[in-house]
């Protein structure tokens, strides 16, 4: 399974959330905001500053520290 941290995905790439390895409450919050296992995400912006992710047509900005801990499965 090709799992990459969100920060190493390029703009426009799709994938599914495989695992989040952030702290307890941060992970929980992300899950509840819809980044649960298997959620379909698309990278809208990933250059400098927080990563912007598209999630079911909405945008969420995640600090790089957090984005690094989100592992994405890029195999379709």
């Amino acid at each position: 399974m090709a799992c990459l941290p969100l920060t190493s995905l390029e703009t426009g790439m799709h994938g599914r959330v495989a695992r989040i390895a952030a702290g307890h409450s941060a992970t929980r919050r992300l899950y509840e905001m819809g980044f649960n296992t298997g959620a379909d995400v698309v990278v809208v912006k990933n250059d400098r500053g927080p990563v912007i992710v598209g999630l079911r047509g909405h945008k969420v900005a995640l600090g790089r520290g957090l984005a690094e801990k989100m592992l994405i499965n890029t195999e379709q």
Binding site: A26, P50, V60
Partner: peptide
Amino acid sequence: DVSHFLLELPP
């Protein structure tokens, strides 16, 4: 520690 940034960007 500096806390995480997490914010929804509305349309």
